[in-house]
């Protein structure tokens, strides 16, 4: 453990340095991150104007502004992309040098993930402010919701990261993983409340979203932070479900990693 405590800050430092080499790319990634929620906000906001009581799934125009504002933040801070990275590393044989180290390659990947989130904040935060200036949302969130919402956000980020990395292990068997990445991303959009708030989904999709982990990565932290969940018990139950998911995925990862490394054939030398 002490070894990890020394290695991880070193990974993080080097990852941040590597990220800072590409300021242009950081800006473009931030723009990519803001475009999708903004477009969806505009769409739902327009739809509320046509609704009989000006509301869809209990949200009016201001409700959607608040929801998508927090989705911008949650989407940014929970981002994970190893499902795309891993197949490249396996196919190009670039995992070999990482496997030769006396430390799980996941730690370096996690440091890159955090480095991205830290370095992109300087561009992302002003964009979030611009979103507020344009949409002028009125926030109803109470302080306890900010506190528990932050914990939900951290658990959501941990869950998305671990699940994404675990799904990425499929690359050890299929080598090419782009389609798996798209399915994962698509499910996150639909069942994670990114395309639309979960309450706006058809009932059968709401059940699926309750049972699968995607809602607990994105929609749940957003709902708490946006003040849409005003029952402490409901929030506590959600946090517990998130924690159970994290533990479950970590266990699956540990088993999967062992099998994956055994399977690894060092493609391309």
């Amino acid at each position: 453990m002490s070894h990890l405590l020394r290695a991880f800050p070193a990974f993080l430092r080097v990852s941040i340095q590597a990220m800072l080499q590409y300021r242009g790319e950081i800006l473009l990634w931030c723009m990519w991150g803001i475009v999708n929620p903004t477009v969806l906000y505009v769409m739902w906001s327009a739809a509320t104007r046509g609704a009989p009581d000006g509301k869809i799934a209990g949200l009016d125009q201001n409700g959607f502004a608040v929801y998508y504002f927090f989705l911008l933040i949650v989407g940014h801070l929970t981002a994970a992309w190893d499902v795309y990275n891993m197949s490249y590393l396996v196919r190009k044989g670039q995992l070999s040098p990482l496997l030769l180290r006396p430390i799980l390659p996941m730690w370096e990947s996690l440091s890159s993930n955090l480095a991205y989130k830290i370095t992109t904040l300087m561009f992302a935060a002003p964009m979030w402010l611009i979103f507020i200036l344009i949409t002028q949302p009125s926030f109803q969130t109470e302080w306890w919701q900010v506190g528990l919402g932050t914990i939900a956000l951290l658990l959501g980020a941990a869950l998305n990261y671990m699940l994404c990395y675990t799904v990425a292990l499929v690359a050890f068997w299929t080598t090419k993983l782009d389609a798996v990445g798209e399915i994962y991303f698509g499910l996150g959009m639909l069942l994670g409340g990114r395309m639309a708030p979960v309450d706006a989904l058809p009932p059968y999709l709401q059940i699926a979203s309750e049972l699968l982990p995607f809602k607990w990565m994105f929609a749940f932290p957003v709902e708490v932070l946006a003040g849409m969940r005003d029952d402490v018990n409901s929030v506590t139950r959600g946090l517990l479900i998130q924690a159970v998911w994290v533990v479950l995925v970590v266990m699956v990862f540990r088993m999967g990693w062992h099998l994956a490394v055994k399977r690894y054939s060092a493609v391309s030398g």
Binding site: H3, R6, A7, P9, A10, R13, V14, R101, P102, I103
Partner: peptide
């Protein structure tokens, strides 16, 4: 030199 620094930490 940055990779060497990281290597030093990884190998403790």
């Amino acid at each position: 030199i940055d990779s060497f620094y990281m290597h030093g930490a990884v190998y403790d």
